[in-house]
Write a protein that binds this DNA or RNA. Sequence first.
DNA 1: CATTATAACGGACGTTCGTCCGTTTTCAAA
DNA 2: TTTGAAAACGGACGAACGTCCGTTATAATG
Lengths: 195, 195
Amino acid sequence: MPKRINFPEVISKLKDFYSHRKRLPSFSELQSLLGYSSKGGVSLLTSHLVKRGILKRDPSGKLVPTPALEGGIKLLGTVQAGFPSPAEEELIDTLSLDEFLIKNPQASYLVKVTGDSMIDAGIMPDDLVIVDRGRQPRHGDIVIAEVDGAWTMKYYEKRGTKVLLRAANKKYPPIEPKAELVIGGVVVANVRKYK
Amino acid sequence: MPKRINFPEVISKLKDFYSHRKRLPSFSELQSLLGYSSKGGVSLLTSHLVKRGILKRDPSGKLVPTPALEGGIKLLGTVQAGFPSPAEEELIDTLSLDEFLIKNPQASYLVKVTGDSMIDAGIMPDDLVIVDRGRQPRHGDIVIAEVDGAWTMKYYEKRGTKVLLRAANKKYPPIEPKAELVIGGVVVANVRKYK
DNA sequence: CATTATAACGGACGTTCGTCCGTTTTCAAA
DNA sequence: TTTGAAAACGGACGAACGTCCGTTATAATG
């Protein structure tokens, strides 16, 4: 039996388990997962993981995962910084895109973009935008609005007491809504998946 | 005591618990959370939640959350479809951005974009790109590559046996790497957060 | 070689967990 | 009013859980 714990391997197995099962393994599951033959050993191991910040204990003393386990993504500076080697991976911060992009999960929706009316703002056809409908639009926001019975995406701009809806594409003229302006929500993020 | 279960309220409380604690509540926790005075009642309730697809049971019989609980985001069609009312929310599919965008969590990184070299591809300064470094670049992919000691983002294009790195901005001329071309990874997604 | 610290073993123990089942309450339909 | 179905109560039960602790094994140090 070895004396050193292979942390990268343990962490990767934990990640695997958590991302597939959406819960942490119990001690006995960890036991067979990692090849221990006693629960005591597992107990020691988990205390190390807590020290390292891989796991933590919630108010009631139960083990819960930290962001490091939650299927998130490692965070880097800018491209210039280059890429980390596997050895230094443990130092890197992990981030959940869901939590990062979505403030109000209950009131947010993912909508596929059609048309090129916002292309100059970097929003292209087939992109997905995250729309928060529980948010008051402010000058400069991109909003989903109902215009003449159809829903479109536009910049929301205040001109004195009036409101102007402007596309990010010179092909389309700005719109000044007549009576009532129905806002479906504010675009809080744009997401594009390649391939 | 009522006879009908208030599912929206139960679901919202479950979401709350899961998104904050990263685990499901135990039966006794559910009991006090929902104001039951017996575990039997909770047991009945959970079986309803399983039937409705809010929870499910994993191979070992333990309760685990479905995507509907996992802090994900509701999925809609295109903008034209308009917005759902709270009443019909239960029907909507939920999606985790992490799982949707990231195939290889272990080998993926989030990198902040500097410069405007890919602006015609809709990748703007301060966007975040998800880079998968465990993937072979193919013709047309956007890659992170080391050119003259600096890391940049470019289209990866095959010209016969040679490789051309091309920016999505006419201001920058294409680059034909001389000797070795170091690829840091393939850009698999682009993410922009507003405000 | 002797010393020391860490890791794992192997049980014992008390607690919590979730299921089960008979009973009671509530509501709606007949 | 009677009947039936669904929801919750209230406990009992066995199984699983995680902690604890003394012992043994391993490896690094000097």
